[in-house]
Nucleic acid binder design. Structure first.
Lengths: 368, 368
DNA sequence: GTGAAAGCGCTAACAC
DNA sequence: GTGTTAGCGCTTTCAC
């Protein structure tokens, strides 16, 4: 055994009476090795308890077979699902995945800096995180392939949805039910520079909402739009403001399901029935949405991660990844948190809906 | 520049007119380097755009400065929180973290096999996953340090809670409110061997429930206990069975908040008010629990991950990690999903509670 | 303080 | 088919 106390490929070679090259061959591809030799070597490996050194192999090979995924606010349901989707395919493809959670701009820079080194990871997946151009340049210069999810980088493959269209769909659903006063609860447009990770989805969904309203000939009422830091608790506060307006909205579109949950909580505290007295629609279709009977605009979260991972793998194999921009579909899921406003005539052509509800039950009042 | 096209430490050394040893020294510890030399080298590094090779350093050093965390069913809220907790401290300590999601026994074995190789990771954190003894032996033999979270391994540092006590607390809370017929909804005791990851928390919470009932002089009624695969949807079905019993329970203890959400859904479908006609208590205190006003037994999920990570780091530095078993505290959080049963006298000494509710409002009916 | 040189354990190119 | 050998890029003695 080597002086290091570790069983190396050389030990195996010696004990098997073959050269290290042969051992390496049976370890890897396995081509050009006589069956009997292979068996011997395999036996010796087991007997010696030999375990290959990942590091040595990586160094020699020139690639660590590892990719990094940078994801902000890991604990949010949508982030996890994207991560899970990516992990699944990365796993299948034989890559290790190092996960970099980012909650502040400082952390983002820290991780990004570390990753702009080749020989650390083969490539990186960036989720929902805007990146200054100079960072992109750094990655390109370092030769580290990049793909993005839920954010568009110029010159980089990205998997996204059309959030403006999504906003239109959500508002359109409400409009088609007959609502005219529709509130919006979303993320602050611009946080303090520090620790602002640059999410933009909420803004774009707001734009879609505005377009839909305009299209319906409804004047934009800034008083019906409330923006605040992300999170259900904040959304609850904002919705409460909306609901205590002299002329409150009959429906609220929340920029995410998490925020929609806050809106539902606000409605409950205000003693309003959903959807009887208030309709609520969210965005994302996280797991709780179904449990709560929340109508929402579904985006394929897990798929987005999986697709990005697939494209990164293709990139790493030198295969084409298709067009830079990959756009995933959105669909309205009508559950039991949206209905025509009180005392309204039934909608002219039925609700604007992409998919039928799991529970079309009339009463969605009550806890769920 | 090296033939590889990559700037190496040798290039920096040459350009600085020093030896590679010196460059390495300024890169790392930095001891024994004249200040002027250091500055020169640093300048050259920046100018050449040199980035150290993580792999080469790791191989040479003998440690990858990376740890793996094996976590089943990553998308469940409790798993993510544990992961997030661990990531935070690992990050601070300068470790990369490769995340291994495990949904099947096959995946578990796959990852575990890969990890029983030294020179891949410095150590591994196993979350909520039972492991046959022989695996533990393999890790020990491979010299890969292990710590466990939410599961006890003999001879391995583990960070856990007392689930039996937790079950007693949950049932005790209900009993103290005056409930006598208390249902339980939890995980199947034994799944098919294949793909059974061996969770046991639900079983232990059930035991605690049984103990508490026995302690209160209430005979055990197997008809009030429903077990099924994990998940809110299954829990909803089980709770529906319970609620359609001739003599249904006035309260239900769900083995996890996720399952409690299913129970709430079942109550709603059955047209039962919570807590008026049915009290529900969960376990974990995930984020939605607060939003839903769900009473629950809180365990410090994020902390559990963080603590495990801290202990692993200590282990890696050769420092003591304290007693093998680290037990984190549990507390009842009384929110608005539990109350005295209908028509009961107020409880003799007040509810059995560890902490006051965020929303002690009387009416918890409605969506939240 | 600093340079030279010996590995770390493996892969891959090349000779036989 | 199989052995030999030259690196991969760095850390780390050990002289000077």
């Amino acid at each position: 055994m080597s002086p290091s106390g570790r069983v190396t490929i050389a030990d195996v070679a010696a004990a098997s009476g073959v050269g290290v090259g042969t051992v390496s061959r049976v370890l890897n591809g396995g081509t050009n090795v006589r069956e009997s030799t292979r068996r011997t070597v395999l036996a010796v490996i087991k007997q010696l308890g030999y375990r290959p050194s990942y590091l040595a192999a990586s160094l020699s090979r020139g690639t660590p077979r590892t990719v990094a995924i940078v994801v902000p606010h890991l604990t949010t349901p949508s982030a996890v699902m994207r991560l899970a989707g990516a992990l699944t395919v990365l796993d299948e493809q034989g890559y290790d995945t190092v996960v970099c959670n980012v909650d502040t701009a400082g952390q983002r820079d820290h991780h990004l800096t570390a990753l702009t080194s080749r020989y650390r990871v083969d490539g990186v997946i960036v989720v929902s995180l805007r990146m200054p151009r100079r960072w992109l340049a750094l990655f390109r210069r370092a030769g580290v392939p990049l793909v993005a999810v839920d954010v568009a980088f110029t010159g980089v493959p990205h998997t996204v949805t059309d959030d403006v269209a999504g906003g239109r769909m959500a508002a359109g659903h409400l409009l088609s039910l007959g609502h005219r006063r529709i509130g919006f609860v979303g993320d602050t447009r611009r946080l303090a520079a520090r620790d602002h990770l640059g999410f933009t989805a909420s803004n774009e969904r707001l734009r879609g909402y505005q377009e839909a309203l305009a299209g319906a000939g409804i004047g934009y009422d800034a008083g019906l739009v409330r923006l605040g830091p992300h999170g259900a608790a904040n959304a609850e506060a904002l919705a409460t403001e909306l609901l205590s307006l002299p002329d409150p909205p009959s429906a609220i579109f929340a920029a995410s399901d998490t925020q929609a949950m806050g809106v539902l909580a606000a409605a409950d505290r205000a003693g309003l029935r959903v959807p009887g007295e208030l309709s609520v629609i969210g965005f994302d279709d996280i797991e709780s949405a179904m449990l709560l009977g929340l109508s929402t605009v579904r985006q394929p979260l897990e798929d987005s991660g999986a697709e990005a991972a697939r494209r990164l793998c293709a990139l790493l194999r030198g295969e084409p990844t298709g067009p830079l921009r990959q756009q995933l579909p959105l669909e309205v899921v009508h559950r039991s948190s949206t209905a025509p406003p009180r005392g309204s005539a039934p909608p002219p052509g039925g609700a604007y809906v992409g998919k039928t509800a799991r529970r079309p039950q009339a009463s969605a009042a009550g806890r769920i």
